[in-house]
Design a protein around this nucleic acid. Structure first.
Ligand SMILES: [Mn+2]
Ligand SMILES: [Mn+2]
Ligand SMILES: [Mn+2]
Ligand SMILES: [Mn+2]
Lengths: 221, 221
DNA sequence: AATAATTTTTAGATTAACCTAAAAATTTGT
DNA sequence: ACAAATTTTTAGGTTAATCTAAAAATTATT
């Protein structure tokens, strides 16, 4: 019962869609997430069901089995640990590591993941603030809030981003925003929902609604 | 012109056979090295020739082109750098890293290799004593000799192994032999070509001809 | 409830990478 | 130099993973 790279990627996609949308995961959602034809997804779903990694009912969508869930969790763990490695040890920028991690996550070998984890000091979050499940598959949760929901006077520490794409991350770098930086909401413009924020107690910048929605903070009192 | 993992593996096999045997590399040598049917090799040779990575004349064997050679060299560089990483940074034993490196070597991304190289301090040899080509594809050569060729009284530092398999490496660990260890040839038994050696100026052990042939040293005067 | 729109599956192909068995070419031994 | 042995290639298949186009099922709309 060996698992292929393609199968792993489908399991991860299903896991993430289920996480976001709650219910049974539909063929088209998977197709959209993976940039493949719906027909290819149906094909793969049959194979994954065959291997007992998903529960699949024709036209009804899919759900991960216990084992499918475990596999997806390990994959995400590997992906995020490699991202930490690339940033912390090799000095890559946070917008450069995703594609490499996409490859590294498929390297097989349990001792590798666990030794990597240990080498990195058992990090609980990746360079984008996403949680890294531990060796037992346990997640660390945090009370994160989008900057777009803060009230004037609210203060928080940046703990994550919702958009992981390079243009957004590079923009944040440019204005001095990154994980761990303090943000104070100065005021909000009702007209376009843009917000004025003070960064690290120093500079002040205006963030569009779109940017504010893609930035997570843990509120500090 | 994207290159697949299978293609890379063939190029590496061809490179290594050519290195050892000198002349044009024959279909059957490749088949043996890769554990595949000769017919599969022919198939692949056509594809590699198509992509200008080898020069291929039916029934006449193959040779790497400039570009094929470059690709193989980079692959070996990556393999060996990852092996250094696994041993030096993650604490794996030297007999545990080959299969992982076999996977890691196929992760694509030039900056990755070069940053890894830098992170590791630009090592010139891997955990088995094999040379690591630099970013320009240049090799470091050494005057290595098999222990089986030493004369009584000759002394050397272990710099490499010819057999990379676990049983041999574990055996060396057991008797206290490894890279950097000093070996003095005490005497040779003509009957079976076994040799008595002093290890690190301390213990003395007998090495069979087979073991002595698979151990390289740089002679010290 | 019937029809229209949407989603999903099936049918039929393609490509890379393998295989076995048979045919063809090359090499070896007398 | 020619038959025998060996090596290599060709022929014909298989499997995973993809695709497009058509058919079938589900869902939404009137
Ligand atoms: Mn990522
Ligand atoms: Mn990430
Ligand atoms: Mn190796
Ligand atoms: Mn090695």
């Amino acid at each position: 019962m060996t698992i292929t790279t393609a199968e792993e990627n489908y399991l991860k996609a299903i896991f993430k869609i289920a996480e976001k949308e709650g219910k049974a995961v539909l063929t088209n959602s998977i197709a959209a997430a993976m940039n493949t034809a719906a027909a290819s997804v149906t094909d793969m779903l049959k194979r994954l069901a065959e291997k007992q990694l998903i529960k699949y009912e024709k036209y009804r969508g899919v759900e991960l089995t216990e084992e499918g869930n475990r596999t997806a969790t390990v994959l995400i763990r590997k992906h995020r640990l490699w991202e930490v490695f690339l940033v912390e040890k090799l000095g890559f920028a946070w917008d450069e590591v995703h594609d490499l991690a996409e490859q590294l996550e498929h390297v097989q070998g349990e001792p590798l993941v666990d030794r990597l984890d240990s080498f990195l000091g058992f990090p609980r979050f990746d360079p984008h603030g996403d949680p890294i499940p531990d060796a037992q598959g346990r997640w660390t949760f945090r009370q994160q809030v989008r900057v777009s929901l803060l009230q004037p006077g609210d203060k928080g520490i940046v703990t994550g981003v919702d958009d992981h794409a390079t243009p957004f991350l590079k923009y944040l770098d440019q204005i001095g925003l990154g994980l761990g930086v303090e943000v104070l909401l100065v005021n909000r413009t009702e007209y376009d929902q843009s917000v004025q924020v003070r960064i690290g107690g120093k500079s002040e910048v205006m963030l569009s609604e779109k940017v504010a929605q893609n930035l997570f903070v843990v509120v500090s009192y």
